[in-house]
Design a protein around this nucleic acid. Structure first.
Lengths: 337, 337
DNA sequence: CTGAAAGCGCTTACAG
DNA sequence: CTGAAAGCGCTTACAG
């Protein structure tokens, strides 16, 4: 019967008593110190497992002044793009022996401040932050002054001062627009997106492509809407009614494109033959949407892994030069455009 | 200049010195003890903020024997259903003053064991677990023996012994099938799903509905495939080639339905007029898929909140009677079926 | 090779 | 009302 009582948890002292050594010795064998001869180590390990000993990380890290906890703060879990990123981050971090403290800000800077404070108190060894819109650009520096290394993801936050992982939005949209323009399109709408750096970068790519092909930009073709399914649906609905005969659009992201696909379908239009539609991100769902979405692939999952890797490096070497990991996106031709 | 040096973090001792009181007094004002007169408390608070004091939760919780950390373990973050659940859990937990340790098992019981161990060492105050398939049904009991309260989500794990939050899968699929049968369909396929409780429950609902309408079940109409987009696509592709003239299908979940929608679209078939298709879960994306998906709504986000609430109750009262929160799902008629 | 001692930053009785 | 002391479970020099 291995019924360890639950009232009092077994400590290093109990193991020491059981193995008839001091608690220092137990501590040393648990960290595989070469100082301890095999025989003794085995005896201690046997005692530990007999007693069902579990290390108390709170205590060991308090004493050692270390932490194996990393904070990851996500702005929009409802968007699969961020869920995929989170999955990449988590995998890399757990593989490296960390445990992740996760928080969702839901695009609310106030909530973000609150969870960041909680994670600071918790003693996080680092932070990967997908900042909510409205985040002051001084935040990364502030967090670093707390003594916690940070990598910012997806959305830049003012100039420099932190490691960053994201996509080349300008180039990605340029490639997508260029593809449409080469296909002969002259009237290309841009659908969805909320005010912020990312939108600016993507619009810059859109405008640059138009300019490169000598097509004057038409403000009426810019339909702003939330970067969500309903946003995409509304944007496409408006576009179709305001611009009869329009045949091509770039979407702020895949989610917007999915909403747009629904609006198209509702009118009996099929993306591909009837209308050229391109998304951005390449979330898993875009491979088999109806129809499969042509999109700009930024490798969301890998982006997350990369951000985690950046943070791990930064923790290892706080003095290393700053890194900007900007993935060069890839236009993925499927059936919608 | 408020440049607190980073080398040594400011402790309760520093605050005590600054405010000219003992550290016990500081501790008491920080927990808003009524023992301390307003004047003194103000002085201490001022000192704390002047110094930029931040409580060290590792230390306070070690001493107090408490924990404000809750583990949440998710089996499949790539499925928006679980991302939505996670979001609901996180919101509720953070609102209650907890911080969440998140891990993704990616349906791997080995990984699950590993992260659970890490979270145990971390001293999690509770666990909400969406178990990976292959999880031994003894796991909840084992975790409870560690002294950590647990609520299991979505997939039951053997009989009783733990709080549970999930959906009435049997009834949900029954309602969906019943709807199709009342619409006159006699040949209704069931697409996708991996072996496990959830599939069994959903198939039971399917069979019960057929029986209720006197329709003999046809094993050829059961097309197993991974519960993913590609799985749904393949299942629908096979169905259409093996069963010419088929006009209705129930999908294991929304993701499978999305893949099926793509397969239908590829053949120029439109769900709704040409084929009746019903999903399960009601993830956000299903509201504006192409076409909008008729589905069984289990309120994913609320399900997550409910699970968190259950855990919070359990922590508050370990002796409370066990709870089974089974949401009665709701057939949501949209355009696909 | 192993033990005794100090201390990580806090909280909690216990005096006064 | 406030301080001195002990102790949460561990690690880390330091002796021997």
């Amino acid at each position: 019967m291995n019924t360890t009582p639950r009232s009092r948890s077994v400590t290093i002292m109990d193991v020491a008593a059981e193995a008839k050594v001091s608690k220092s010795t137990v501590s040393l064998v648990l960290k595989n110190s070469p100082l301890i001869p095999f025989e003794t180590a085995e005896r201690v390990r046997a005692a530990a497992s007999r007693l069902g000993y579990v290390v108390n990380r709170r205590a060991s890290q308090l004493r050692a002044g270390r932490s194996n906890t990393i904070a990851v703060v996500i702005n929009d879990l409802m968007n699969p793009f961020f869920a995929e990123i989170l999955s990449g981050i988590e995998r890399r971090l757990v593989d490296a022996g960390y445990v992740v403290l996760m928080a969702h800000t839901n695009e609310n800077p106030e909530r973000q401040r609150q969870v960041l404070q909680a994670m600071r108190e918790q003693g996080a060894a680092g932070l990967v932050l997908c900042p909510a819109y409205g985040t002051p650009s001084s935040l990364p520096e502030e967090v670093q002054q707390w003594g916690v290394p940070v990598v910012v993801m997806v959305r830049t936050l003012g100039p420099g001062g932190y490691d960053f992982a994201g996509a080349d939005n300008e180039q990605g949209v340029f490639d997508a627009a260029d593809h449409l323009l080469r296909g002969g399109h002259r009237r290309i709408a841009f659908l969805g997106g909320q005010a912020g750096v990312v939108l600016e970068q993507r619009l810059a790519g859109y405008r640059r492509a138009l300019a490169a092909h000598g097509v004057p930009p038409d403000p009426a073709l810019l339909i702003m809407a939330n970067p969500t399914h309903p946003g995409g649906y509304e944007a496409m609905t408006r576009l179709l009614s305001e611009q009869p005969g329009i045949k091509a659009a770039l979407c702020y992201n895949d989610i917007v494109a999915f909403g747009a696909l629904a609006a198209l379908g509702e009118r009996g239009l099929r993306a591909g033959p009837d209308f050229s539609l391109i998304g951005f991100d390449n979330v898993l769902a875009s491979a088999l949407s109806n129809p499969p979405l042509t999109t700009v692939d930024v490798h969301p999952c890998k982006l997350g892994e990369e951000a985690a890797a950046l943070l791990l490096e930064r923790i290892r070497n706080p003095a290393a030069p700053q890194q900007n990991h900007v993935v060069r996106p890839n236009l993925l031709l499927r059936q919608s455009g």
